[in-house]
């Protein structure tokens, strides 16, 4: 008997005769925002991302380029990883001297390590938890791009922000590689003191783009 068959047989004999559970009946939790909660969604998202000690800007869509340029110059970021499909207008105000590292052909880990940072979009933002979700789609790149560089600048469109975790789950495609990011990497392993910045990017900067006049 293979171990596969052995384990399956053990399971079947262990649960034989046990009653079934009605899972759908047990889903009494919130799956959509309460009326009235919807209005402060983007503000809540910004506040919750800030709680993780990330840098957050909330700006009208047309100011994204300037905000990105100021953020990069503030860090003296000269070599920036740029994933395929990133909206060109986000880089409309960066100086011509910025070295743009394209991931085609794929950058080696050492190249990523030598970069000053990475700029991406995202697949979704979750207001209640202050979470950004990347799905390796256009403008996001493969997972290593947002992992190895020490600085991650992420642009989130306001219409990508959902109220809670259930709304995010229903919007995401599980077959894609997903990375949920809530603030910069952190550890609390030393006397439960929170230290931001361990192996992932030590700085996370988020630009939330509001469409139309504020």
């Amino acid at each position: 008997m293979s171990s596969r068959d052995l384990i399956l047989a053990r399971i079947r004999s262990a649960v034989a005769g046990a009653p079934q559970t009605d899972v759908e009946e047990a889903r009494g939790y919130r799956t959509s925002p309460a009326p009235g909660e919807e209005s402060g969604r983007v503000e809540l998202f910004a506040e919750r991302v800030r709680d993780y000690r990330a840098i957050v800007h909330v700006v009208p869509e047309e100011e994204v380029a300037d905000t990105v340029a100021r953020a990069l110059s503030g860090r003296n970021a000269g070599r920036l990883v740029i994933p395929d499909g990133l909206p060109e207008e986000w880089l409309g105000a960066v100086p011509a001297t910025l070295e743009r590292l394209r991931d085609d052909p794929p950058l080696a880990a050492a190249d990523l390590d030598a970069a000053d940072g990475v700029i991406t979009g995202c697949a979704a933002g979750i207001a209640e938890t202050g979470t950004i979700v990347l799905s390796a789609g256009p403008g996001q790149g493969r997972r290593a791009l947002t992992l190895v560089p020490d600085y991650h600048l992420c642009v989130v469109r306001a219409d990508q922000v959902v109220p809670g975790v259930p709304e995010a789950i229903s919007r995401l495609d599980p077959v894609r590689p997903l990375t949920w990011i809530s603030g910069p990497s952190a550890t609390s392993d030393i006397e439960l003191n929170r230290v931001e910045g361990v192996h992932g990017p030590r700085t996370l900067e988020v630009v939330i783009a509001i469409s139309g006049p504020r």
Binding site: Y29, I126, A168, L178, T179, W180, S182
Partner: peptide, 23 residues
Amino acid sequence: EVFLQLLPRSSTGERMNPYTSMW
């Protein structure tokens, strides 16, 4: 949608842990 609410809050006492990978 249930467990990504239950686990981080019960575990590290955060609304969400910094990184979650799914593949």
